[in-house]
């Protein structure tokens, strides 16, 4: 296996990690106006993700940095082609990130409502746009011989990519609802559970539909080893998604969240294996497509990056896991009477 293939896998893993982790904090943000009826409830919801959302977002920055270093031509073509969608993502991530930190800094209900709106919009937009973007990457975009994008914003708004957007939106919202059911108590926990039940049906339809469409369009070109792997990942994702829906119905909160996390990771794997060996196909001519071979950095850079990743990725995983352990308890609103600590 070439180092460039290893880095293709590494980038797939980083995106899977990003979607699994930030997926639920996007979901919590999207559900904020629907489940957060009063300020206390909204605070509880935000506090379930407060200590971890920023660390979750670093998975995206690492994926971006890794793409830049390992596949400069991919990074350059993709980021300049998706210029306006990425601008929207950036604006969303900016207002959302600031909102988490600034919301509680003034005791003023208009101030808080404004930031709540920012959290909602800042979570909703990327949850849709990442799916649309991935749909377009898989479908291919008009790239010329110099790998420059020749389309415009409306090129991205094709039915397949929009189904992709619906899939990520519903999967992440479900993920957030399952996370809230797992991390809160009493009334909020019950309502999160009901929300998960309601969204699950749409998420199963949109998620499975998008994966089926992906596999069908890629298998039309014939079968390959990675093609089989992609179908297997897609099947695993579909099964895990259905298991998540069923476990939620049965009130098995931990199992439901774990199954949905598996579904998101497997779906990401299915998309990347379907894409391989392309990294950004051109709809103008297959000769203009960017592949793991023609977009990759030279061996020396990939080797340096590999050594750094082998040493530090386990460390990152260990301390991120520790944070989740420290904040493993459920979050709840203040009791009617001032309750003693540590019950």
């Amino acid at each position: 296996m070439h180092l460039s293939d290893l880095w293709f896998i590494a980038i797939a893993v980083l995106w899977a990690g990003y979607f699994v982790l930030e997926g639920f904090d996007f979901g919590v943000g999207i559900l904020l106006p629907f489940l957060g009826r009063d300020d206390t409830t909204r605070r509880v919801m935000i506090n379930t993700i407060g200590p971890v959302w920023d660390g979750n977002e670093v998975w995206l920055l690492t994926a971006g940095g890794a793409t830049f270093a390992a596949f400069p031509a991919w990074y350059a073509a993709m980021f300049s082609a998706f210029y306006l969608p990425l601008l929207l993502v950036l604006v969303a991530l900016i207002i959302r990130g600031v909102a988490f930190e600034y919301r509680g800094k003034r005791d003023n209900s208009n101030w808080k409502r404004g930031w709540d709106a920012a959290i909602f919009a800042g979570s909703l937009l990327p949850a849709i746009l990442w799916g649309v973007a991935f749909g377009n990457v898989l479908r291919g975009i008009p790239l010329d011989a110099a790998h420059n994008f020749t389309g415009n914003f409306f090129t991205f708004l094709n039915p397949y990519a929009l189904v992709g957007g619906l899939a990520t939106l519903t999967l992440f919202t479900l993920h957030g609802a399952l996370f809230l059911a797992l991390k809160t108590t009493s009334d909020l926990r019950r309502r999160a559970h009901r929300a998960a039940t309601a969204i699950a049906a749409i998420a199963v339809a949109a998620g499975c539909g998008f994966l089926a469409w992906t596999e069908a369009s890629h298998r039309a070109a014939g079968w390959s080893g990675t093609g089989i792997a992609s179908v297997a990942c897609a099947a695993l994702a579909a099964v895990a998604l259905i298991v998540a829906a069923l476990a939620n119905r049965a009130g098995r909160e931990g199992a439901a969240f774990a199954a949905n996390a598996t579904a998101i990771a497997a779906a990401t794997a299915a998309l990347f294996t379907a894409l391989y060996p392309n990294v950004l196909p051109s709809t103008v001519s297959a000769a203009y497509s960017l592949t793991t071979a023609n977009a990759a950095s030279a061996a020396k850079t990939l080797m340096v990056m590999t050594v750094v990743a082998i040493i530090f990725l386990p460390l990152v995983l260990a301390y991120q896991a520790w944070t989740y352990w420290v904040f493993r308890k459920r979050v709840t609103g203040p009791a009617a009477a001032p309750a003693p600590k540590g019950h």
Partner: peptide
């Protein structure tokens, strides 16, 4: 860098991209 300076990014990604990726992995997570 990718959005506005893609010709630059293509030329220098091998060198310039590596510290950016390592920065995310070593520093941003921390």
């Amino acid at each position: 860098f990718g959005m506005n300076w893609s010709a630059y990014s293509r030329l220098v990604g091998n060198i310039f991209g590596a510290p950016l990726a390592i920065e995310a992995l070593l520093a941003f997570f921390l």
